[in-house]
């Protein structure tokens, strides 16, 4: 398997609002927004809660557990920097808390429905919240 840390690939384009997510990711943690008003989690982070439009929400630590909703083995990456890693898997992870995030899946043969767990991984020089089979 290619050492993902050496890839020359585009990293996150964080802004002040999303900085805590990427800072936590760098420490190997997954945090997601949780609305104070409607008591629901959401992802990705937004200025206001997409469920109820409340502007008061908190970062909460997620369990890091999830289930694979779908995946693709990427043979021809959309960005040339990923070519040395192909084929690699990306997938939709239904987090145990509810929201869905797209992530890198550390498995040569993923299966829809498989249980996943957070696997902080250095990708292109930054630790990102990837997932692997639990």
């Amino acid at each position: 398997m290619t050492d993902l840390s050496t890839l020359k690939v585009p990293g996150p384009t964080e802004i002040a609002l999303t900085q805590p997510f990427w800072d936590a990711a760098a420490e190997g943690r997954l945090v997601i927004p949780h609305c104070r008003a409607c008591d629901q989690p959401f992802f990705y982070p937004r200025e206001i809660c997409p469920h109820c439009w409340a502007d008061a929400w908190d970062w909460r630590q997620a369990s890091g557990q999830g289930r694979l909703k779908s995946f693709s083995m990427v043979w021809k990456p959309g960005h040339p920097g990923w070519a040395p890693a192909a084929p690699y898997a990306v997938g939709l992870v239904a987090l145990a808390e509810g929201p869905v995030m797209l992530s890198h899946i550390l498995s040569p043969a993923p299966v829809v429905g498989m249980v996943l767990t957070l696997a902080p991984t250095d990708i292109g020089g930054r630790v990102l919240p990837a997932f692997r089979p639990a």
Partner: peptide, 23 residues
């Protein structure tokens, strides 16, 4: 999408529709 999909290796429409087909 640029912030939360692309860094994981998911650039372009092909991958999105691959995920839909797989599902």
């Amino acid at each position: 999408i640029r912030e939360f999909d692309v860094p994981f290796g998911a650039s372009g429409a092909n991958i999105s529709y691959a995920l839909l087909k797989q599902a």
